[in-house]
Design a protein around this nucleic acid. Structure first.
Lengths: 233, 233
DNA sequence: CAGTGGTCTAGACCACAAG
DNA sequence: TTGTGGTCTAGACCACTGG
């Protein structure tokens, strides 16, 4: 027998997850092909396809044309972390956002930034340093370099009024980026800016943003002591 | 006129991204409905649907039934971070993974863990402490609590041989979870375990894993000094 | 109620890769 | 060459939600 008479792709997904979870389909093992599954479940192949695609996106299935679909041996958990505009993140907590520009000017960036941006020896970049506050308490320190070759307009923006974070999102073209997290001990300067003690462990989110092959901006966000960046799997 | 005669949903996606990027469709503005777009582009509505769905998943479009599709005003960047099995992460760097169990036993967990797991006052949980090494250098310290009500089998596993990280992935049912990053200063114990100095800033990835409403495990991964967790947007 | 996105279907053809 | 997933289509109905 068969035909559980499924209708929706979510139901199919549920069944698939069930079989994997129950080890009816073991890790490393091939599962039936789409056509057979569709027949067995009593729905269209398209529907099965949609369900399997969704499961594969979570990393639990591995699909290849001609080869088939198998259960991943080493499932990789994928967490999607959302990086909101800082002002929005603060306002979402019902706190008041404020912002202070510490520095804006053209300088030679550090070597790593320079290399990533592909700048020549004599090219400067726009340096922005700013602090975001939540209810007047330091929230995050923003240390940014903007590539003026790709975003020349940035030079004439008054970043005392517009914050760089939002301006770039609104004005730079769509882009891809690299992202990383690490932590540092607060040095004298940072501890003063963030109102914490020297040596305290601070979380850093570093991002490099590109448009095609053109680097747009490199930014380090150093969060206040005790900050926790949360997300859901 | 019209009909750019599009065929694939990827092409449609590209066109859509282009219009958003070129500000032909402004943030906050509604875009044409699927049917119209399909007509204009010369493809089936299903194809347009697929493309718009993909773009919406990246956070650039906001879709609602009956209302329509509009360009997000505050695009939230979504980074997908992959959390591999630790051994795999190390081996992918061509380093040798080894593992030491420091502690395994039944204890009363700290209050926050207890609350999250929904344990009664007299219920204990399984505590696992272990260290993973890369080329014999401490890589990450694993501080884990396992809920024996939901994973009773765990009590009898020899975690000196099997590491808890992998065993759970292989044996606990599919689940959802909360994830967060923060950082701490190494205390005496941790600094000794990870071979670093007291006070050094360490990155922590904390995860709570659930199966439906049943908590499975709560784990803190404290990485060695200088570790950087990278991902791509 | 009506308009919009969400999904399902049956059938077709395409693209990739193992043999 | 062949088997498998990837995608497209045209049409249909559903589900949500604002009016």
């Amino acid at each position: 027998m068969s035909s559980t008479e499924v209708k929706s792709w979510r139901k199919v997904q549920e069944i698939v997850l069930g079989k994997i979870s129950a080890r009816q389909w073991m890790p490393g093992e091939f599962i039936p092909n789409e056509a057979d599954l569709a027949l067995e479940l009593g729905c269209a192949r398209t529907t099965v396809n949609r369900a399997l695609r969704a499961v594969a996106e979570t990393g639990l299935l591995d699909r290849k044309r001609k080869v088939g679909t198998k259960v991943t041996t080493n499932p990789v958990r994928k967490a999607t972390i959302s990086i909101p505009i800082i002002r929005q993140e603060i306002e979402d907590k019902n706190q008041v956002h404020s912002y202070t520009l510490i520095e804006k000017g053209k300088y030679f960036p550090p070597l790593d930034v320079k290399a990533q941006m592909g700048l020549k020896g004599n090219q400067k970049a726009l340096r922005i340093e700013a602090v975001h506050y939540a209810n007047n308490r330091p929230y995050v320190y923003e240390d940014r370099w903007i590539n003026l070759s790709t975003v020349p307009k940035a030079e004439n923006i008054d970043f005392e009024i517009e914050n760089a974070n939002e301006w770039l999102i609104q004005n730079a073209p769509l882009s891809r980026g690299d992202f990383s997290f690490y932590s540092i001990n607060a040095d004298k300067k940072i501890s003063k800016i963030l109102g914490t003690s020297e040596g305290n462990a601070l979380l850093i989110a570093k991002r490099m943003t590109w448009n095609g092959f053109d680097a747009i901006t490199s930014v380090k966000l150093i969060y206040h002591f005790g900050y926790e960046m949360a997300t859901a799997i």
